[in-house]
């Protein structure tokens, strides 16, 4: 499929949409968390496939599956859309928007050191916790889906994720009120 997309075979893109479109839509919908309409979600998915089409040469099969690559593109498309909708929905005036602009851009930046530390910490989680954590907090997966996927009870999933969160908070010196964490 990837090679055919590289060769600009639109039928291959259609097959990709058939195969992953719904999963991507589900992901985008979870990330939008009720912001925007179903059209927004579908547009986001469409944009993700378009980005994949245009950037297919950036896809490196050594790094991960095509599916994962699509998921990651869609995730960030959805975040862009959500930020856009949130900021505009909260807009009170052109002036306030202007002030919000600078602040938001700064607040969303996480230092590369913190990012490195965060990823290293996640890497230290054993399996299945590492995958559970990633699927839940990077891909916004539902607890019920994770329970089904891992053959665990929902409570067991919650307990494992709780332990991960506690470990992360301790390592990053975070409190539950958000100290040390940049809020969106």
């Amino acid at each position: 499929m990837v090679e055919r997309i590289r060769k600009r075979d639109t039928r291959a893109l259609e097959e990709a949409i058939d195969a992953y479109g719904l999963a991507l839509k589900a992901l985008v919908t979870r990330i939008l968390s009720g912001r925007g309409s179903a059209e927004d979600a579908e547009e986001c998915v469409s944009d993700a496939f378009l980005a994949a089409w245009h950037d297919i040469d950036k896809y490196d099969g050594q790094r991960g599956s095509f599916r994962t690559w699509l998921y990651t593109i869609a995730k960030y498309k959805a975040l862009d859309k959500r930020r856009q909708i949130s900021r505009l929905t909260n807009a009170a005036s052109l002036q306030e928007d202007t002030h919000i602009a600078g602040a938001s851009a700064e607040q969303q930046a996480m230092s590369s050191e913190t990012e490195r530390e965060l990823i290293d910490l996640i890497r230290k989680f054993g399996e299945p916790d590492r995958s559970l954590f990633w699927l839940r907090y990077f891909y916004y997966e539902e607890l019920e889906q994770l329970a089904q996927l891992f053959g665990l009870t929902k409570k067991a999933v919650e307990n494992r994720l709780y332990r991960c969160r506690v470990a992360l908070r301790q390592a990053l010196h975070m409190t539950e009120k958000g100290d040390g964490v940049n809020e969106e």
């Binding site: 490196d60 050594q62 790094r63 991960g64 599956s65 599916r67 994962t68 690559w69 990651t72 960030y76 975040l79 969303q108 930046a109 996480m110 590369s112 990012e115 965060l118 990823i119 996640i122 890497r123 399996e127 299945p128 590492r130 995958s131 954590f133 990633w134 699927l135 839940r136 907090y137 990077f138 916004y140 994720l161 969160r165 992360l168 975070m174 539950e176 958000g178 964490v181 940049n182 809020e183 969106e184």
Partner: peptide, 27 residues
């Protein structure tokens, strides 16, 4: 949980792409 999600959302996209190479999670 949302606090953790917000933190994860700030991870740079290109860094995620790079990290996936090393099996960040079970794809």
């Amino acid at each position: 949980e949302l606090q953790i999600v917000k933190l994860m959302d700030q991870i740079d996209k290109e860094d995620v792409m790079q990290e996936l190479k090393d099996g960040l999670y079970d794809q």
